[in-house]
């Protein structure tokens, strides 16, 4: 059994370049600062962003390094299922997985793709607490598919794992500084994500 230090939380956000992972990390980190919580993030720009596999590390609390160790994520938020499987080595026995039910084909001619149900089943079979939601559909409901990242952020807060580190209202405060229409859409997306976490938990 992995006993993780209680003074910090490691959030690993993964997905495909263009899915809004940098914004995800930035909004969460800014909210942490409003909360008075120390935070460090690490992200990937440039070549690594062009539709490639993308990881953002967000570390809240008592840490000095921006990087999350393998086996050391308290929660993995994945915008895409293949990426969830790819970065599962950041999980330990206590890690919570929050996954978007979306599969994006890597742009490789003739690539052999596992089926969505198969990926989900294999991920579930490792026995971690896993929550799967349809973030793109929920974002569409909020006003734009672009806000799927905020749905996932809402779900992360809905998990309560960041209680004591980041309050939902501080995330709303950060989003409320965005221009319209994004302010309204993102707040809606955040709330939809927040409430759907418990609906999709099992």
């Amino acid at each position: 059994m992995v006993k993780m230090n209680r003074k910090y939380k490691n959030v690993l956000a993964v997905g495909v370049g263009g899915q809004g992972l940098i914004t995800f990390g930035r909004v969460l980190a800014e909210a942490a600062i409003l909360n008075g919580t120390r935070v460090l993030t690490a992200e990937v720009h440039g070549m690594a962003q062009r539709g490639g596999s993308v990881v953002t590390h967000i570390r809240l609390g008592d840490v000095e390094s921006p990087l999350i160790p393998l086996n050391g994520a308290h929660v993995i938020v994945s915008m895409e299922l293949l990426e969830a499987a790819r970065y599962i080595n950041y999980a330990n026995r206590e890690t919570i997985l929050i996954l978007n039910k979306r599969l994006i084909r890597p742009n490789i001619p003739g690539v052999k793709m596992p089926k969505m149900d198969e990926i989900i089943e294999k991920i579930k079979s490792i026995g971690l607490k896993t929550v799967i939601l349809e973030a793109d559909e929920l974002a569409e409901e909020a006003g734009s598919y672009v806000s799927a990242n905020m749905v996932m952020l809402g779900a992360l807060l809905g998990s309560k794992i960041l209680d004591g580190f980041v309050k939902l209202e501080n995330v709303e405060k950060v989003i409320s500084k965005m221009p319209e229409p994004w302010r309204e859409i993102n707040i809606k997306a955040l709330k939809l994500g927040y409430s759907s976490y418990s609906k999709n938990s099992y």
Binding site: K3, A48, G51, N71, L82, A85, N107, K122, I123, S125
Partner: peptide, 22 residues
Amino acid sequence: VPWLGTHQEVSIEVPPRPPTLC
């Protein structure tokens, strides 16, 4: 070091996802 040791694996072959032209 609590996180040193073996990590989780998913038993499917995950295809690589290199960056690509948009």
